[in-house]
Write a protein that binds this DNA or RNA. Structure first.
Lengths: 200, 200
DNA sequence: CGAGTCGTTGAACGGAATCAATCGTCGTGG
DNA sequence: CCACGACGATTGATTCCGTTCAACGACTCG
């Protein structure tokens, strides 16, 4: 849906470096010098940081087609760890080459701005959802935002468990509330589709 | 701290439109055609959306120096409402003029990319904090991120109440936990400063 | 076929929201 | 100038919602 890929920016940048990371493989560590930014040809990568107590906190989960660490273009070191959570094919874009390209090719930088702007909007939406304290209303608002405006249909691309993670709640809570919504007739559920029943 | 202002991008863009909005004044509504993007000379503006039940949810609070609605550059309509929550002086940057400028002046577009990248990083950090379910640990992690790495000092720029809002919890909870931290000797509190006691 | 994961539901506990009351400060207008 | 209202900070009491622990079926994959 959101077209977050850098590939459009790099259509004619041929000498791409590509590398396969096994599940658990480290693309970079927090504090390392920034040499590249990345996009995922296929797989999944988590950006995470460690808390004082040593627990890891997920900042962002990048999927196939997404780019990540673009924000590091203007930073000397990475601010988090990047770990492959599936076997992943990852493209490397050297930082300096990217900066040069943006400097010299206006339409590429506009495209890059478009991608970043789309990321900003998507992140704001996620934060907006988190600003709702009640789990029930948070889920409802999420469904409302995700649903097709006319049909009210939501096609689940990912597992409910990862949706729960995105919503910032225990997955059990999501299951329970969805069951309750279904019982109350607010939603209809099939295999991988949820339909919002608009009875206003 | 984060230099989110657009002014650097517009140093030589003279014919600025500036307007004063009283508290509660509407800069734009969701659904309106995008004509401008904005920055705040002085004041505070909330970007919000309405839920199905009619409650308003804050997406973003922009303060003096911040720009907002830059993500709307690539959108036909605004995706949220913008309301002044203090009397605010707001700069207008016509959308098309901005796009033209980015197209023609590479160093400006690089600067714009830098601003957007910084916003992405800041939003990711906020989201990272929200991924911690326990209020206690969330506050602790927030303090850790905000503190000066060497001195452990945190200077409170805003009210604790707005910090609580940013952390996504009731303000009473924040007060209580801070009091508890102080009692446990984890932090030291003075008027507008919190110091993390590093006893690892 | 067993290990791993998702989806689902139950039970119980605890933590965080909510309601409420007080105090101090600041700005404003009569 | 002082009273009043608004708001932030703080703390207490209570309620309830959501986490956590637990158990089970279904499914996939090696």
């Amino acid at each position: 849906m959101t077209d977050n890929t850098l590939e459009a920016v790099f259509t004619d940048y041929k000498p791409l470096k590509k590398k396969l990371f096994k599940t658990g493989g480290v693309i970079f560590f927090q504090g390392e010098t920034v040499k590249n930014i990345f996009s995922i040809l296929d797989g999944q990568v988590k950006l995470e940081r460690t808390t004082i107590e040593g627990r890891s906190v997920v900042m962002y989960t990048a999927n196939t087609g997404d780019s990540f660490a673009e924000a590091a273009l203007f930073s000397d070191t990475y601010h988090c760890n990047a770990i492959a959570c599936k076997d992943s094919q990852v493209y490397f874009y050297p930082k300096q080459a990217v900066l040069d390209m943006l400097q010299t090719q206006p339409h590429k930088s506009i495209e890059f701005i478009r991608i970043l702007a789309s990321q900003v909007r998507s992140l704001r939406t996620k934060l907006e959802i988190r600003n709702i304290l009640s789990a029930r209303e948070r889920i409802l608002h999420y469904l409302y935002l995700m649903a097709d405006p006319t049909s009210g249909e939501i096609f689940l691309k990912s597992s409910l468990k990862s949706v729960a993670e995105e919503l910032g709640m225990a997955h059990e809570t999501l299951y329970r509330e969805l069951a309750r919504f279904a019982k109350e007739g607010i939603i209809l559920r099939t295999e991988n589709k949820i339909t919002l029943c608009s009875n206003n």
